[in-house]
Amino acid sequence: MAEYNTMELMICVASRELEDGASVGVGTGAPCAAVMLAQKTAAPNLLIMFEAGGVSPILPEMPISVGDSRTTWKAIMASGMCEIMETACRGMLDYTFLGGAQIDMYGNLNSTRIGADHQKPKVRLPGSGGANDFGSFAWRMMVMTPQDSKRFVEKCSYVTTPGWISGGDSRTRSGLAPGAGPYKIITNMAVMDFEPSSKRMRIVSINPGYVEKDVHDNCGFELLRAQKISETRAPSDEELRILREEVDPYRYIIGR
């Protein structure tokens, strides 16, 4: 089996979730690498949207901003934020990838602050950007993140982007569109989904090189277990070749 690092594994696992013909709202970094890899493997007709207005580019290289010129390189359309977010709100955005400094058992995300005082925060972070919007509208929200108990917390200091809120039907009761919400959480150690009625995070597969105890030990809340927990499929030689040679030749992402 080929040698690979955990970032490469996470990108390959994430890319396999995207089926051909689906639409995905994406940012920069690892999710963008996953989307580019999907486009060059199983999903050549993936419809890519960037929040700033880029629609369906043929990405020549990794964008450094979700609004830079690469996001409209040989694109179908160069539009704007309302066009993208309204398309998502109408129900035409299948997937999005988001992240944050903290995530809880319902997939709620914090990218705003650490500490309790909002006007004078201990640590101020960028805020929502388009995350809350994509997280509110996309049918299936995914997260790619390293896993540790500082990041996987019982309670976020602040909920920037909605997951399943407080579980059950709380998300729909809040007013957000029914049927949309967190779908898969891909970490360096495992892949999680959400138990359908409680909406709590649960382990579905463990990455090669880790055991289930690692996953529990590096999580600040109790993780549920799927009926059958499998081993996450390792990256294939072909996936790694494309990722290294075509998607991220300068190792901006996979070199981290």
Binding site: M85, C89, N108, T112, H118, S128, N132, D133, S136, F137, Y158, V159, T160, T161, P162, I165, S170, R171, S174, G175, L176, A177
Partner: peptide
């Protein structure tokens, strides 16, 4: 009218 930010601290603040 929009259909985002509900249920979160982003709405609360």
């Amino acid at each position: 009218p929009t259909r985002n930010i509900m249920g979160t601290d982003t709405f609360k603040f």
